[in-house]
Amino acid sequence: MEIYAKGMESRHLNEIIRSCKDKNIIVRGVNGQRFIACGLDGKDITAYGTIGNGAGAYMLGGVLRVEGSAQDAAGDTMNGGEIYVGGRCGDATGYAMRGGEIYVKEDVGYRAGVHMKQYGEHRPVIVVGGTAGCFLGEYLAGGVIAVLNLKNEKCPVGEDMARGMHGGRIYVRGKVSVPLPVSVTASKARREDMELIRPQIEKFCKAFRADEREIYSEEFTLLQPAAGNPYNRLYVNN
């Protein structure tokens, strides 16, 4: 099914998508319509244009491809499935996501992957082709974030990254020159660490025709939480 969405209200568009029996849906002329693919499962949606806030929120499965950019809160509380954004993303990408994968060809804004967590077989992934804004992976409790820095910026991540990180892994291609919290350790990613994200990097390259060799041409920094609970001694019983 093909939908021409220009000027359509979000709710109306989403009703059409939800009630459509086809697996493959193409939406053209999208500009700012919100919550596309919200809570959906098993559909393959391709949207052309700038997709509005909350795309793929609570998504359970299936694929959302955006031929253009996504705005804020893409993949909010996402549970499964894949989102591919051929352009850039706004703020709070993948907020509190528990499962599924988000691939962004270019940059993501502030607070990507905040509060991501993993559970059982759910291991959320965010792969960013360009750079990420500040507070990347704040409160990170699980899952994987990879910043590929394909434009080879000097530092592809912003200040205050990984604040309150207590689980999961963040891979950054190149060096991380911003200060890190004491509760996080940074190290060179070893071969076995890289193996863990190889399938995702393959997917990224396939989706956006990126050069895999170039990605591996530079070493990655791996961020992980330090052992021990930093909050243990904060409180006294009253």
Binding site: R98, H115, K117, Q118, G120, Y139, A141, G142, G164
Partner: peptide, 12 residues
């Protein structure tokens, strides 16, 4: 809560 055992549950 759908988080691993022993993982801190932080709600900012």
């Amino acid at each position: 809560r759908m988080i691993p055992q022993g993982s801190d549950a932080i709600s900012p």
